[in-house]
């Protein structure tokens, strides 16, 4: 554990709290992509089911259970409030996730991490590829609506920050732990890059106190 990884995990937890707080305070799931949340739930299932067979630390186990639990709790809350969106979600949450799923599965089968062809390792690699692109339905939804509530914006920012910190952690581990995972690094870079536009708009609008609207 190093400071970057800890900050990454805390950003991740913060993003989940912000999302749930947004839904609670507005009593609405407007502007939140159900598809992105469903993809995250699938990411956590395929990556963290090893919690039953492989023990790392109490911290590791607790966080895995937290991420699994909150992702399904979020889906449950969103499903319950599905009619509260100001615009029917099915008309704007239209990103075709099939391509993300098929692409991630293909990459995991062709290039499993460390070239280890086990079920758990292929699922782990699949989860990394899928996570790297899982935000796309949310970003497309944001682009279509053109504006977002501030809590939604903070949620996406914290989520983007999370993988950005992991990239710093991997650079740190490469030099100080003599540890490196190419799959983690490449997917982490892609994931962080997908947020880069968003980071820029966030900096321009939110940090300067303006309403969040895409140009």
């Amino acid at each position: 554990m190093n400071i970057f990884r800890f900050l990454a995990d805390m950003s991740h937890v913060l993003s989940i709290l912000l999302l749930l707080q947004k839904i609670r305070s507005s009593n609405s799931v407007a502007g939140i992509s159900f598809k992105t949340q469903a993809l995250y739930a699938l990411v956590f299932v395929t990556r963290y089911l090893d919690v039953f067979i492989y023990f790392v630390s109490i911290y590791n186990t607790a966080m895995k259970i937290l991420f699994l639990g909150t992702s399904f709790y979020t889906l449950h809350v969103m499903y319950k409030k599905r009619d509260s969106g100001t615009i029917a979600a099915n008309t704007i949450d239209t990103f075709r996730v099939e391509f993300l799923l098929i692409g991630s599965l293909a990459l995991a089968l062709i290039f499993p991490s460390e070239r280890i062809y086990s079920v758990t390792n292929i699922l782990w690699t699949f989860s990394l590829w899928l996570e790297s692109v899982a935000i796309l339905p949310q970003l497309f939804m944001l682009q279509r609506t053109g504006q977002a509530e501030s809590l939604t914006v903070h949620y996406i920012f914290a989520l983007g920050l999370y993988r950005g910190f992991y990239v710093l952690n991997w650079i740190y581990r490469y030099y100080f732990d003599n540890w490196f995972s190419l799959t983690s690094f490449v997917t982490g870079i892609i994931q962080t890059a997908l947020y880069s536009d968003f980071f820029w708009v966030y900096y321009q609008k939110v940090l300067k106190g303006k309403k969040f609207e895409l140009p």
Partner: peptide, 10 residues
């Protein structure tokens, strides 16, 4: 199944 490729990160 097991620790053939231990993933210690989240």
């Amino acid at each position: 199944l097991g620790d053939e490729n231990a993933h210690d990160e989240l």
